[in-house]
Design a protein around this nucleic acid. Structure first.
Lengths: 312, 312
DNA sequence: CCATAAAGATACATAATAGGCATCGATATG
DNA sequence: CATATCGATGCCTATTATGTATCTTTATGG
């Protein structure tokens, strides 16, 4: 019996299915299946009954969960108690994230973070790297999470890739080109070009069409706000390309759909960036860990999603 | 944080030194040192203060121990609860052990066994393999632990070696030859030959002298009882050779000493023997596990002891 | 009624780690 | 001052936790 087994049984019990639990924890389903099976073997009886859609606890399972919960809670108390007695993790951590990164990661991170460090304060800034670079150097902001287009130009910046990102074409519901499967079919449309980073956006936007051997698209509107972009898309026949994360956060509700192209539109990889010459505060270090974990997990799912999209 | 870390911290806290704790648990001292250090690193502060002779808990260490104890206890409850709800481990296990094996292993085994299976009954028989072989086949005895001279003659017997054993020469305190360092110096003495196994003892006893190029010793007394042998040794100038374990259990108290020869007198390896065609009952399986663990651990210490004796 | 999606199981490969072995330096104690 | 005892370190191996790829089964929606 290992602590992961306990963690896993509790996760499955809560999630109601092995797959869902493995997603929650950021481990793979086979690993989770084995962890559960090993635990059951060690105890010599099943903790869950398997159905076609998920699993349910057996009576013994419920017994196990009660004790296991106590163990997990004691374990958490150990860390809390020691952290607080040391005065660690009382303070604030200040992060900057791109909108896409925060859509992808913040729900997960925030949940864990508040649960584990209830006395901590989080200062959150939405933005891209360039505008906040100075704040990182001044120490105003502990670290940045988001797309990084070029290599770091200073040796004192530590860059850690979390995942390769992708973009999608977005249109209003009922758009005449909504059924397109190739970028070529969209070459006649009018576009909104989101423009956040002052330097690369234009070239980057055109590059996607170049790669497909197409002429530069016709840009009708440049927008510095993703919100505004979505609103415009919802109320016109304009198309735009945004990081895929915006699918999960659609302020325009049901009025917007993505156009599922066969080809994948790449995007700059999402990275963690912070100063390399100064260590992060303990609290920032923990937040960074959570971000790293959530980012790698998200990246795995995104890669799988992309692969399914390309083969299917 | 792993469960072993918790186990190890608790063991060290109880034992008062890293080495003592590692001995208790049957793991090596470096492993224990690392386990403690890793835990301290993970928490970011020391749990123990190191002294030249052992370690003591820090304040934070005491805090940790309180929670950790709860975790370990909950864990134990999980197994107890499930075992008892299944009606497992309520019953009896019947083992036969040689005297030497029981001296070496029973204190450890019995302690663990009673703590973990309080509802179980243990039927213990002292003896060697031959007299009880039939009982093993009849199912009367679950398994045997002790020296095995020949290979198993039936395919249905599973033999598992626990450790290579050794013997020592025993004399009364103040015996004129007590300071001998070579078997040769004892060749003129008179001997008691313990004789338990009807077949091999005589040949086996002489063989030790043959290996040293000496004539067969002069046997004055044959004894089928180790007790009787020890009594005779204590009250005469007779010498005898017994498994080294008897050193740890000296019924004749202070009247008997071992003669520390430079050469090592081998003994038949101590093994676990049980039927291979029938599975052990769950309870016997657990007892067998405890025996195996204790046996391997004891074997390691014995080997180290022997090595030190030969080099030093 | 069939196609599909979602679930759990299996087989194989790899990366992380617990543990063992040999050895060292430090420190009380006889 | 010698020695036994203790904790620390470096290196290696066996175990195991996890990932990747693939399969079978079973509800479910068109």
């Amino acid at each position: 019996m290992k602590l992961n087994n306990i963690r896993d049984v509790l996760a499955v019990a809560k999630a109601g299915s092995i797959r869902a639990a493995s997603r929650e924890l950021g481990i793979t389903q086979p690993s989770m299946t084995r962890s559960i099976r090993d635990t059951e073997n060690e105890l010599g009886l099943p903790l869950f009954t398997r159905h076609a859609h998920g699993v349910t606890l057996t009576d013994m399972g419920r017994l196990f969960v009660r004790r296991a919960t106590a163990i997990q809670s004691e374990l958490q108390h150990i860390f809390e108690e020691i952290d607080q007695s040391q005065g660690r993790y009382i303070g604030e951590v200040s992060v900057a994230m791109s909108a896409a990164a925060s859509i992808a990661l913040m729900p997960t991170i925030l949940n864990d973070f508040q649960k584990r460090y209830p006395q901590a304060t989080l200062k959150f800034t939405e933005g891209l790297f360039h505008p906040i670079e100075a704040d990182i150097f001044s120490g105003e902001i502990d670290f940045f999470v988001g797309p990084l287009f070029e290599k770091a130009n200073t040796t004192s910046l530590l860059v850690e890739k979390l995942f390769d990102n992708m973009r999608i074409v977005i249109a209003r519901k009922g758009h005449p080109l909504a059924g397109a499967t190739k970028l070529e079919e969209l070459s006649g449309a009018h576009w909104i070009r989101p423009s956040f980073s002052h330097l690369h956006d234009a070239a980057d936007f055109d590059a996607m069409f170049e790669r497909a051997g197409l002429p530069s698209p016709e840009i009708i509107l440049q927008s510095r706000s993703a919100m505004m972009t979505l609103l415009a898309v919802a109320n016109s026949n304009l198309l735009t390309i945004l990081p895929i994360q915006w699918l999960d956060f659609m302020p325009a509700g049901e009025q917007i759909v993505s156009i599922n192209l066969n080809e994948t539109l790449p995007a700059a990889p999402v990275c963690i960036v912070h100063r390399g010459d100064l260590p992060l505060t303990p609290l920032a270090e923990r937040f960074c860990d959570l971000t790293r974990k959530a980012g790698l997990n998200y990246g795995r799912r995104l890669a799988k999603h992309k692969q399914e999209n390309e083969t299917g």
